[in-house]
Amino acid sequence: MRPPARPRTTPRQASPGPTTGATPARAPARKQAASSARRPSTGVATAPTGTPSTAASGRRGAARAGAARTGATAVVPAGQDVPPRVSTAMADRLAERTAMRRHRTWRRVLAWVLSLALVVGAAVAALGSPLLALEPAEVAVTGADEYVDEAAVREIVEAPAGTPLPRLDTVSLREEVLDLRGVKDVRIARAWPHGLAVELTPRVPVAAVPDGDELALLDSAGVRVATRPEAPKGLPQVDVPLDDALALQAALHVLAALPAKLSAQVEHVSADTQDAVETVLEDGTTVRWGGSSDLPLKVETVQTLRTLDGDARTIDVSSPELPVTR
């Protein structure tokens, strides 16, 4: 007789409660997940191999650099890629400065061009404007004397009446005035807006030289100043032919070197040659000067001898170091 069969037992199911029989491989995974949950997110994406992604790191670095330039704080969520940001603020400022510099340069150039145009326009207007025309009533002539014909001078300088002063040729006017007898020098200046200032330097005659029936009045350079029928009072007469230039020039040099007090006492001058000049004073004293060299020393010697020997009728200073009186 067989024994009765034993009933089969059903395998016991795992209870849902905590167990201590978890596998060793699953336990570290749960610990890693819990540790990740506790740590704050740094926004660094991890590649499958456990190293940060190079592309994502580059984009996040650019984002942080842009934020640093603008003064903001870059916040990149974990696991999210940020597109690269390129700041153009510096380039915009440089472009603005360049544009302003170019603008100022053009303004400066335009100002110079306008100023030059105004100056040229004013000059052109002045050259042809009747507002600056010469008026005869505004012409002033000074320095004329009895040996300079002032009317002849005015006729020359007033001839271009109506011509604007900027276009007036004062050089030509000066040359015409210098051609007049008795004029040694002349200065012509514009007297704005309508006049001229004419300043004459006349020639001063120092001797009267016979010229036929008249006397030629000559200055110290031998230039004829005027012609008179007789010598003016106080002007000595030189008995030297006009064609004997050397003797005449020596006599004129002696007269020009005399001081005013002594020159006023000379009545007559003669010169047979250029080295034999003689003068006759109003008291009858004859002074033999010789040539026209060493005239300052000769003049001083004559003055000294006339003071020391007032009775001398002849004074010879042709050799001033060895003067002779008689």
Rank of each mutant, 00 (worst) to 15 (best):
L255C: 03
G182N: 10
P241V: 09
V204H: 05
K184V: 12
L248F: 08
V186S: 11
V225P: 02
D169I: 08
V287D: 02
R203S: 13
R203H: 03
E230R: 08
L235P: 02
K233H: 10
V171A: 01
Q249I: 02
E282P: 04
E175L: 09
L281G: 05
S172V: 13
P241S: 15
K184H: 15
A231V: 06
A264Y: 06
A216C: 04
L281K: 08
K184A: 15
V177L: 01
T201I: 05
S270L: 03
P236Q: 09
L200P: 00
G284P: 08
A251M: 01
A226D: 15
P202E: 06
V204D: 09
A231E: 05
D243L: 15
T286V: 15
A191N: 14
V240A: 12
D185M: 05
R187L: 07
L281I: 05
Q237V: 15
T285H: 09
S172M: 06
T285E: 10
L281V: 06
L248A: 05
A247W: 09
G234A: 05
A221R: 06
L218H: 04
L200S: 01
D185Y: 07
E267T: 12
H253Y: 02
T279R: 01
T285M: 10
V238T: 03
E214V: 13
E282A: 15
A245W: 14
A256M: 04
V277P: 00
Q249E: 06
S220N: 07
E175V: 10
L218T: 05
E278L: 02
I188V: 13
A208I: 07
E267D: 12
P241W: 05
A189I: 12
G284K: 14
E176N: 10
R224K: 15
L200E: 01
P236H: 05
H268N: 09
V209I: 10
T285N: 08
A260T: 07
A276G: 03
E282K: 14
R187M: 02
D169G: 03
A189T: 15
D239I: 01
V204R: 13
T285I: 12
L178V: 08
E214C: 04
T227W: 06
E175C: 06
L196E: 06
E282M: 07
G195D: 03
A251Y: 01
A216D: 04
P232H: 10
D239Y: 00
G222P: 01
D244Q: 14
L196M: 09
T285D: 07
R187Y: 07
A256T: 10
T170M: 01
P205R: 13
E282G: 13
A221P: 01
P241N: 10
D185T: 11
T201G: 02
V183L: 08
A276P: 01
R228C: 05
D213I: 14
V225M: 09
A191G: 13
V287S: 04
A231C: 09
